[in-house]
C-alpha cells in the first residue's frame, strides 16, 4: 500500500483535491468549477476513455506477437534511412493524444528500436499525425501546414539524433512502465 502511495505521491493528492473541488463547486453552484469539470476535464476523459485502452491493447498484442529480431531488423540500430522512414510513417498514421504515443514508444524501445528512431517517433507523432493535419489545413490553410511540416522534419531529426546519442551514452536500463 505504502509502495503504491509513494509511486503516485503527487497524483493522489491532486485527484482527491479535484474531487472535493468539483463536489463543492456543484454544491455551491460555483460556475468556474463546474466549467472546468464539464467542459475541460470531461472533454479529455471522453477523448481518452476509448483511445487509451485501445492503444494499450495494441501495445500488448505487439509485445506478444512481434519478435525482437524483426523490430531490430527494421527499425533497430542498423536500419538506416529506411528504418527512419518506416518509423515516421508509423507515427504519422497514429491517432489520439500525444500521451498515447509514449506507451507505443516504450514498447518499440523495449523491442530493440534504436534510440534515435524512438525519438523520431515521438517527435513525428507530435508534429504531424495525419488525422490532425486534415484539421489543421481546414483552419489554417494548406500553406501553413505544409510549411510547418517541411521545416519541422529536418529539425526534429537533428533533435532525435542528439537525444539518441545522449540516451545510448547514458545506457538507460528499461524501466518497468
Amino acid at each position: 500500500m505504502w509502495e503504491i502511495y509513494k509511486k503516485y505521491k503527487y497524483d493522489f493528492p491532486i485527484i482527491i483535491a479535484f474531487i472535493v473541488f468539483v463536489l463543492l463547486s456543484y454544491f455551491y453552484s460555483y460556475n468556474p468549477g463546474i466549467s472546468i469539470f464539464e467542459d475541460n476535464f470531461w472533454g479529455f476523459i471522453k477523448e481518452m476513455i476509448l483511445a487509451l485502452p485501445v492503444m494499450f491493447i495494441l501495445v500488448g498484442l505487439f509485445d506478444v506477437w512481434v519478435s525482437r529480431e524483426k523490430v531490430q531488423k527494421h527499425v533497430g540500430e542498423s536500419s538506416g534511412i529506411r528504418g527512419m522512414m518506416l518509423i515516421m510513417l508509423l507515427a504519422f498514421i497514429q491517432a489520439g493524444p500525444i500521451y498515447a504515443a509514449f506507451p507505443v514508444a516504450y514498447i518499440l524501445w523495449k523491442k530493440g528500436t534504436s534510440p534515435r528512431n524512438i525519438f523520431i517517433y515521438l517527435s513525428s507523432a507530435s508534429i504531424a499525425k495525419i488525422p490532425m493535419i486534415a484539421f489543421e489545413i481546414g483552419f489554417l490553410g494548406l500553406k501553413f501546414s505544409l510549411l510547418r511540416i517541411i521545416i519541422s522534419i529536418p529539425i526534429f531529426i537533428i533533435v532525435a539524433t542528439i537525444m539518441g546519442k545522449y540516451f545510448t551514452k547514458n545506457n538507460y536500463e528499461v524501466k518497468n512502465g
Binding site: 503516485y8 503527487y10 497524483d11 485527484i15 494499450f56 491493447i57 500488448g60 509485445d63
Partner: peptide, 18 residues
C-alpha cells in the same frame, strides 16, 4: 497481451488523471 496492455494502462492512470 490484453492483460499486459491493461496493466500498463492501470499503472499510468493515476498520473494521467492528475
Amino acid at each position: 497481451a490484453v492483460k499486459k496492455g491493461m496493466m500498463m494502462f492501470v499503472k499510468i492512470l493515476p498520473t494521467l488523471l492528475s
